[in-house]
Design a binder for these strands. Structure first.
Lengths: 209, 209
DNA sequence: CCTACCGATCGGTAGG
DNA sequence: CCTACCGATCGGTAGG
């Protein structure tokens, strides 16, 4: 019976990613030492280089995976939506649930952008910009169809994203609300903001008036 | 003519605080080295200890000052308000303008909470909790007087604070909006949320429904 | 505010 | 995956 190639290594790599996330969350990139990380998974520091090129690349891979997962989930969720309202509600659902369930990863991704080399920084920021563009596209789509009227889609995107993203800083599993509750709360909030289904009379208090 | 005690030292200390803020913002606490910081103001690393006890205390003083300034400004702004609406609008104005104009300090204060020793962490978190309590008190005040109906003031506080705080991550001086514009935008947003001055009929879509 | 220095530790590599 | 090690650098101190 030959040992399955990398069967032990796979487990160690997964453990490294989990331990690394905790370390990055609690200590930051500069504060996390490779000796600590190695100790977390029971190997020596020098052995880490069987699992990644170097410390920088380990960080980059983590941030890249977060953005890839988020983008993939969003693309899947937006498949088949037919109206701006549907798209907006789907975006909120996906964004809020991702930023709640994977809040540590998202927080690390934001805080440690500064720790990336210029080349890696460019890659991740581009992914983030494209993701942000998805929401802006939805807002402008609704503008064209008359679903709502957002005076400045760029700023509105920043504001809406900001308020949804912040859920990750205070959501705790087992707390007062489940993630599905939070999704409903945020959907209602944005609906109120954009006056979805609101009375036809009062058109003045628009977002970013 | 005896030299005024610390006249040169005052300037150096101020320069240290500015340089330290930039370093903390770009590199984080663990990533900022005291040799860099000393170089920024043109002294040797060993001389830094004439200006602070150690690296940890330098961080603590920065975070403490941010919270003290914010709290002081808020107290002054809330002086004399007579209704929950006035208080809420005042809170928003103060919070948004502070988090825009001093966004780097606020971002560092949030990110480097983890770098504080347990004792220092306790002090700062207590200040933050008390600040957060001011908004919660306002929301509950309005609940009692019937200004609005917020089902869960704890969660509502988190959500409102989160969306206002995020302005610091994208506001740039000289950008599309002035700080006073952003204040108005956020005031309008929260008004929409709480249905301040809204029609008497539709009472269902409340915050955190 | 400087020089000179301390012990500790860092990320990373060579060669198994 | 380990041992042994590299040069570099860290926060902090002694003694002016």
């Amino acid at each position: 019976m030959t040992r399955t190639a990398g069967s032990s290594g796979e487990k160690t790599l997964k453990a490294l990613r989990e331990a690394g996330l905790q370390r990055l969350y609690r200590q930051g990139f500069a504060g996390m030492t490779l000796r600590q990380l190695a100790g977390d998974v029971g190997i020596q520091a020098g052995s880490l280089y069987n699992y990644f090129q170097n410390k920088q690349h380990f960080l980059f891979e983590l941030l890249e995976k977060v953005m890839t997962d988020l983008t993939d989930e969003m693309d899947a969720r937006l498949q088949g939506v037919e109206t701006p309202e549907q798209a907006l509600l789907a975006f909120i659902e996906c964004h809020v649930s991702f930023h709640s369930s994977r809040n540590k990863e998202v927080i690390v991704s934001t805080m440690e952008l500064r720790s990336l080399t210029p080349e890696n920084y460019t890659v991740i920021v581009l992914m983030r910009d494209q993701y942000e563009g998805r929401l802006r596209d939805i807002l402008e789509w609704g503008n064209r169809t008359g679903c709502w009227l957002v005076p400045d889609s760029r700023v509105a995107t920043k504001i809406i994203l900001g308020m949804m993203t912040s859920v990750g800083s205070w959501y705790r599993p087992g707390g007062r609300y489940r993630i599905s509750d939070l999704v409903l709360i945020y959907q209602k909030m944005v609906e109120n903001q954009l006056r979805l289904g609101g009375g036809p009379k009062d058109a003045s208090p628009k977002l970013a008036s």
